[in-house]
């Protein structure tokens, strides 16, 4: 399979008053056509910044893309001008966001917002775009789409708004959808519906999806490939079955232990102790050392960041002797 998006060694930092924060440090990603790729990690692990910087959506300054390449359809996204990026955004790569309550413009009609990408990127007439908009609402399961087009976001529930966001993102039939925690802000009952909708549309339209989440249960359900991020770096990356069958890195294991559904009833929920490190004062060695609870912290690298190694075809692990059971070699 050929990759439609290939990110190599992405480096993003934020230059703040309190110093330089390395939000993304050498992340590489590969997304094949039609695939769902998960990026998992705690808040502040750099998973969102990774995707936002691909589309030039991080505020610059203070953000700055320091290096790397992101090949998409033969062009390097990181080298494109703002005007060129505008032609990619919402046309060939779309995004949906965490909070559907605030992600839609409260001052504009649903229809106006929904068909904006069509009007912008495909130059459709108002009437033609509106008709496509009604179709798109029907596609995401919104009843009475014709009259719903004339309503405003506050007349929609949270789940319905996320459906509108999905319809809006897919209305131009992009090749890639970036979903930034699309179910986190929704009720549990709605979460499943939205996940099913994304899976269903993905299959029908044959688009690739990057799924950003901190919820491993969701990843398990939808993703083909999983990238685990910690402190701005990739910790482990593998096919979903391989990762869930045998998580190699201590952080991946810790994340899995904290899935509530996998624990016995009545037991206290497992949580990873401590907080992710301050990215402006990143330790020189293994970033997870301080929070590791597998009694091998002593073996963690302290002098250099652990390198990524491919241990099996397409299974990459950060090679830290303290975090990887038995070591890699």
């Amino acid at each position: 399979m050929s990759a439609i998006l290939e990110v190599t060694d992405l480096q993003v930092s934020f230059h703040t008053r309190h110093g330089v924060v390395k939000a993304v440090d050498g992340v590489s990603l590969r997304v094949e056509a039609g695939q769902t790729v998960g990026i998992v990690g705690e808040s502040g692990s750099g998973k969102s910044v990774t995707c936002y910087s691909l589309l030039g959506l991080i505020p610059q300054p203070p953000g700055r893309i320091e290096g790397g390449r992101a090949m998409f359809g033969g062009q390097n996204l990181l080298g494109l001008s703002e005007a060129e990026l505008q032609k990619v955004r919402g046309s060939r790569i779309s995004m949906i966001f965490q909070d559907p309550m605030t992600s839609l413009n409260p001052y504009l009609k649903i229809g106006t917002q929904l068909v904006e990408p069509l009007r912008l990127h495909q130059g459709l007439s108002k009437a033609a775009a509106w008709a496509r908009g009604i179709e798109a609402l029907r596609e995401v399961g919104i009843a009475e789409p014709t009259s719903r087009m004339d309503q405003y976001p506050h007349e929609f529930s949270g789940g319905m708004r996320q459906r509108v966001m999905i319809a809006m993102a897919l209305i131009t039939r992009p090749e890639l959808l970036i979903a930034d925690e699309p179910t986190t802000a929704l009720d549990v009952t709605i979460q499943q519906q939205v996940l099913d909708l994304i899976k269903d549309l993905q299959k029908r339209l044959g688009i690739a999806v990057i799924f950003i989440t901190h919820d491993l249960a969701v990843v398990h359900e939808v993703c083909d490939v999983v990238n685990v991020m910690y402190a701005g770096r990739l910790v482990e990356s593998a096919k979903a079955e391989a990762l869930f069958a045998q998580p190699r890195h201590a952080y991946t294991r810790a994340l899995m232990r904290s899935i509530p559904a996998l624990q016995d009833r009545g037991q206290a929920l497992y949580t990873i102790p401590g907080l992710p490190p301050d990215l402006s004062l990143l330790p020189s060695g293994c970033a997870f050392r301080a929070r590791q609870t597998e009694d091998r912290q002593g073996l963690c690298l302290t002098d250099r960041p652990p390198p990524l190694r491919e241990v099996a075809p397409q299974h990459w692990i950060q090679d830290c002797p303290g975090c990887v059971e038995g070591g890699l070699s």
Partner: peptide, 12 residues
């Protein structure tokens, strides 16, 4: 957030 959405849609 909705301004970010607009940017993500490619609105100039």
């Amino acid at each position: 957030d909705f301004i970010r959405t607009a940017r993500a849609k490619g609105v100039p």
